[in-house]
């Protein structure tokens, strides 16, 4: 892909290694390669889905993008008013300013709010910490946003505590909180997976609606392909810290290239008892990527694995046409 002005987030060769058995006086013996060499471009206004099974590094990628944890390697470029800035190595005051541009929505609406703070305090916290506006302005902004996310009338929610709200209402509060300082980029870490199915679509619809209204770019982290299909323009499939396939949602879901994506799709239940589908068998379960061998990460479980895969490093992401990239030697 060429460098164009429309790119908001440009992740280059991002890696995170977690040491194992490290102590104060002890060197780490081995490392978990939670995220290794991830490249990802996200255009302004686009929603990108990051899918994969548990433990594949989706959440770590999200935390790296919001700088909750420091990357071991690589760069994250964010397009701002002052041009492209690398947020991977930011510190101090610069970092605090950066916090205004990137926000996160958490998975569990029951744990992502301090039980001792009122809804107002929770939603106004970013404004408070960043020192934006006077108290009256903050209050107006918070009640405005609460109405926007569908908690009406705002005055009846402002001074309640989180435990007085339902799960869906709490997630709406979490969305309001993420959007209160007008961020450009929001990482949503499975925002609907803890919700009842009945309120799930409501929250997803709200998020899309807000994306259009405020021009927010989302990175959706999810393991639910149906959610990803509903919400995202593009999908990136992750396996053991690597992106194995990325492309437009319909391309990836209708014509999967990578054997892992095919297996993932075959695991989605179809609500039709007469439908038969060729099962794609993959062996074993996901393992911890502790000091992985320098070969395809999917080698151990792949039905297509052969000598080429064993002898070579992890395959690069190659364009299969129309911006659909896959990392496999057998395509």
């Amino acid at each position: 892909m060429t460098q164009d002005n429309n790119t908001l987030v440009d992740v280059q060769n991002l890696s995170k290694l977690f040491p194992i058995g490290q102590g104060v006086f002890k060197q780490a013996e081995s490392f978990v390669h939670a995220v290794s060499g991830v490249n990802l471009k996200i255009k302004r206004g686009e929603s990108v889905g990051l899918v994969g099974e548990s433990g594949c590094g989706k959440t770590t990628t999200g935390k790296l993008l919001t700088r909750l944890i420091d990357p071991s390697e690589g760069n994250i470029f964010l397009d701002t008013d002052e041009g492209r800035v690398d947020i991977a190595h930011m510190r101090g005051k610069e970092m605090k300013i950066f916090r205004r541009r990137v926000q996160m929505i958490f998975q569990d609406p029951y744990e992502s709010m301090n039980p001792r703070l009122t809804i107002y305090d929770t939603v106004a916290e970013p404004l408070n910490v960043q020192g934006i506006g006077t108290v009256a302005e903050r209050e107006a902004r918070v009640s405005d946003l609460l109405e926007t996310v569908g908690l009406t009338p705002a005055s009846s929610f402002l001074f309640r505590y989180p435990h007085e709200l339902s799960g869906g209402q709490r997630q709406r509060v979490a969305i309001a909180r993420a959007l209160v300082i007008n961020p450009d980029f929001v990482v949503a870490d499975e925002p609907t997976s803890m919700l009842d199915v009945s309120v799930r679509t409501g929250v997803m619809h709200l998020m899309q609606d807000l994306a259009d209204r405020f021009g927010v770019t989302y990175l959706y982290i999810t393991h639910d392909l149906a959610v990803a299909r509903y919400m995202c323009d593009r999908i990136a499939v992750m396996y053991l810290g690597k992106i194995v396939e990325i492309g437009n949602t319909e391309d990836v879901l209708q014509h999967p290239k990578h054997p892992y994506t095919k297996a993932l799709l075959s695991a989605v239940p179809v609500p039709d008892p007469t439908y038969t589908r060729e099962p794609i068998l993959i062996k074993g379960g996901i393992s911890r990527p502790v000091d992985p061998e320098p070969r395809c990460r999917f080698y151990d479980r792949c039905p297509l694995a052969d000598k080429i895969c064993e002898g070579n490093d992890h395959p690069p992401l190659e364009d299969q046409g129309g911006g659909h990239l896959a990392a496999c030697y057998h395509i």
């Binding site: 916090r99 996160m104 958490f106």
Partner: peptide, 10 residues
């Protein structure tokens, strides 16, 4: 997570 949320707010 609300500790992480606070850190993300700056």
């Amino acid at each position: 997570p609300y500790i992480e949320a606070a850190r993300i707010s700056g």
